[in-house]
Design a protein around this nucleic acid. Sequence first.
DNA 1: TGTTAATCCGATCAAATTGGTCGTATAAAT
DNA 2: ATTTATACGACCAATTTGATCGGATTAACA
Lengths: 132, 132
Amino acid sequence: MLKLTRKVEYALIALRHMQNKEPDAISSTKEISEMYDIPLELLAKTLQLMARGGIVNAVQGPTGGYKIKAKLENINMIEFFEKIEGPLGLMDCYFDSDCTLISACNIRSPIKKINDNMRSMFENMTVGEITQ
Amino acid sequence: MLKLTRKVEYALIALRHMQNKEPDAISSTKEISEMYDIPLELLAKTLQLMARGGIVNAVQGPTGGYKIKAKLENINMIEFFEKIEGPLGLMDCYFDSDCTLISACNIRSPIKKINDNMRSMFENMTVGEITQ
DNA sequence: TGTTAATCCGATCAAATTGGTCGTATAAAT
DNA sequence: ATTTATACGACCAATTTGATCGGATTAACA
């Protein structure tokens, strides 16, 4: 429980890798995958998600790859997680529609407390802090 | 990702239920399971784990059940999670033995940062706060 | 302009984790 | 003794996650 997924891990590794290069240098999926021994296809998918989320720019064709687009200090971890993994498990109760019993719902507020605490923690943590 | 498990949820529901009774009142698994519509067997397992962990007392036989034993304000959430779920996912890197590549290991420190932050947050959160 | 090397993207399979069930043993109140 | 509850290990089912595959698209470069 409370584990980060590989995709999140790979995304952070990739960002950190790109951060250590010149601002406009391009890193290919293959290059990153080989250097850190990450399955190429899964890393590719992760980078695509980040490209779609506006975190990196994709450059197609040979000599293509990715480079950082967004200011990483402006992206908090909740946004980051959601771009990569979609809606978070820790938000489940908010959308739980089969929560019909009022008593059961009230009693579930401990879980809400935990989720709220986690949420505010990740909202105050930026991708920039984590990768630097 | 980052989801709490059902067992943790059921444990908190049960504790909260017992907290709303007189200090020495006994709650049976069946009573709790029916009131909150929780699978009896799974709830039983969870209560057994809490009994083994010294959080509640088990009273056997007919008219038996459980009552709170420990001071809930003295148990932090890390301890609580570990009693119920065993070693946490968020500690994985510490024990990761196949982490041979130094470069890969260094690059993984972002995950360590996140884990450390989560850890200290849960260390400073007690079961008492959450269930009350 | 055709070849090549990269990203893109959906579908799908495999593995791990979690949720839930079953059967039986054991303990204690009546 | 009988009944009713917890105790506990083994097991199956469902969900989530990790990884793979096949093919389409894009663009550099000879």
